[in-house]
Simulated scan of single mutants.
Amino acid sequence: MSSLASQVILHPTVAETLKVLNTTLGRDKIYRAVQYFSRFFAWYLISKGYKLEATRWNALKGHLATARKLLRLGKPLEHLQLALRAAQTTGEVREQVTTIGRQVGYFGYLTYDAIVWANSVRFIALKPDTAAKVNKTANRFWLAGILFSIAHAVFKSARLTQEVKEVRLLSEKDIGGENARYARVRTIEALRTGTRHQFLIDILDLWIPATNIGLFNFNDGVLGIFGFITSVLALQKHWSAVNAK
């Protein structure tokens, strides 16, 4: 029995999970996945007439949303730093501009989101209409950040596609041999895969702030599924990055 317990507790998957949970980003993505699944499942239960059963899932969704806002209190400064670093680097102009726009958008979103959190825990007291305006402004910044991220992915993907074509046209003498060509193509393809992965996340996440500010009218079931999928995709990416170290 003890041997079986040891095999379970010391299993590599358990160790990898603990490494992810030891990071703030890992915990945030897991909380987000549960939050958006709860949003979907509460909507599903209500649509089937199980309003009482949906109450606990709505409560879980609300508490996780508040917890995630607390986890992200320091992140606006991180995005501001990334925007400043992008402004100081040289590179493809369109990618640089969209990177700065994305980071500034997320900086604004998380800054206003922190005010929403402070009001929700009654650390500050905002009038209902002011709180609604702050929340709407946060979602506008979020939407702007996602749109810049999508534009960045389009520009970067086009550049990487062109780079692959150019590398394949080079002679072995120019690039240093077939092995060097293969390594270069693999590197570019890995970057392109990562760009497409983020593009998919952004395309699905886009509809959440767009609905929150009234541009679209998706129900909680659709938004819950979108949010759950993007949370799992982001968690997979973070899992690979953490456990590759």
Rank of each mutant, 00 (worst) to 15 (best):
A65E: 05
L64W: 03
L71G: 01
V97H: 08
E53F: 08
K75C: 01
G91D: 04
A54L: 06
R102Y: 02
L64M: 01
L64S: 01
G91W: 06
G74M: 04
A59T: 13
A86T: 14
V97G: 00
L82P: 00
V104G: 00
Q81I: 13
R72P: 08
A65C: 00
L70H: 02
A83G: 02
L73E: 08
Q81K: 13
G101V: 06
Q103C: 06
H79G: 00
V104N: 02
Y106K: 04
I100C: 03
A54H: 06
A54S: 15
V93H: 06
G49A: 10
Q88L: 08
L52A: 09
F107Q: 05
H63M: 12
G62P: 01
V104C: 08
Q96K: 15
K61S: 12
R94V: 08
E92Y: 13
R85K: 15
R85F: 13
G101N: 07
L70F: 13
T90C: 04
G105N: 10
G105A: 11
K61T: 09
Y106Q: 01
T90H: 06
P76Q: 12
R94I: 08
V104F: 10
V104P: 08
T55C: 07
G101P: 13
P76C: 10
K75Y: 09
K75I: 05
V104Y: 04
L60G: 05
A65K: 11
T89R: 11
K69H: 03
R94F: 11
Q96Y: 03
R56M: 09
T99F: 02
A59R: 09
K51M: 03
L80K: 00
I100H: 01
L84H: 06
H63C: 05
L84D: 04
W57L: 15
R85T: 14
Q96R: 15
L84S: 09
T66M: 08
Q88M: 08
G74H: 03
G105P: 05
E95K: 13
R85S: 14
K61H: 14
E78P: 00
R68G: 13
G49C: 09
L73F: 12
A65V: 03
Y50G: 01
Q96A: 09
R94E: 11
